Simulated assay, not measured.
Amino acid sequence: MTDNALAYRRSHAFRTAVTDIGGHQRFTRAYRPQTNGKAERFNRTLAEEWAYAQPFTNSHERTAALPGFLHNYNHHRAHSALNGQPPITRLNNFAGH
């Protein structure tokens, strides 16, 4: 999820990168700072719990650690906004993995 900046809206490279990792482009609602706050909070979590949580020798090491962080974040990490449940539990087809 990104804000509505033209860099995200009109960038074919960004859209391709998101699609290549199996993602879907989602944008915050215009004039809705609460939604943008969610995106900003996720960016802060990424910085604190992944990008700078430990020293990496190089960017390749950091990139290699991202899938594991995202799996933990989405499948195992308790989220206070979800009553202590991970985001995966919000999916309609969640089978309890």
Rank of each mutant, 00 (worst) to 15 (best):
M1F: 03
T2H: 11
T2C: 13
D3V: 05
N4Q: 10
A5R: 09
A5M: 02
A5C: 02
L6D: 12
L6S: 15
L6Y: 14
A7T: 11
Y8S: 07
R9A: 15
R9C: 06
S11V: 06
S11T: 08
H12A: 14
F14P: 01
T16Y: 10
T16F: 09
V18K: 07
T19V: 05
T19G: 06
D20S: 12
D20C: 01
I21F: 04
G22W: 04
G22I: 07
G23A: 04
H24E: 15
R26V: 15
F27M: 14
T28H: 01
R29H: 10
R29N: 05
R29S: 10
R29E: 10
A30T: 12
R32L: 08
P33L: 01
P33M: 02
T35Y: 04
N36W: 00
G37A: 07
A39C: 14
A39R: 00
E40W: 02
R41N: 15
R41F: 03
F42A: 01
N43F: 12
R44F: 00
R44D: 00
R44N: 00
L46F: 11
E48F: 00
E48S: 01
E48L: 01
E49M: 02
W50P: 00
Y52F: 15
Y52Q: 09
A53I: 03
A53V: 03
Q54H: 11
P55N: 09
P55A: 07
F56P: 09
T57F: 03
T57S: 11
S59C: 05
S59H: 07
S59V: 08
S59K: 04
H60S: 13
H60N: 12
T63D: 12
A64I: 07
A64T: 14
A65W: 10
A65V: 05
A65R: 09
L66D: 07
L66N: 03
P67Y: 12
G68K: 03
H71Y: 13
N72M: 03
N74V: 03
H75L: 02
R77I: 08
R77Q: 15
R77V: 05
A78R: 15
A78T: 14
A81T: 14
A81M: 06
L82N: 13
L82Y: 15
N83A: 13
N83M: 04
N83R: 11
G84Q: 04
Q85W: 03
Q85T: 10
Q85P: 01
P87S: 10
I88D: 11
N93T: 13
F94N: 15
F94M: 08
A95Q: 11
G96P: 12
G96D: 14
H97G: 08
H97L: 09
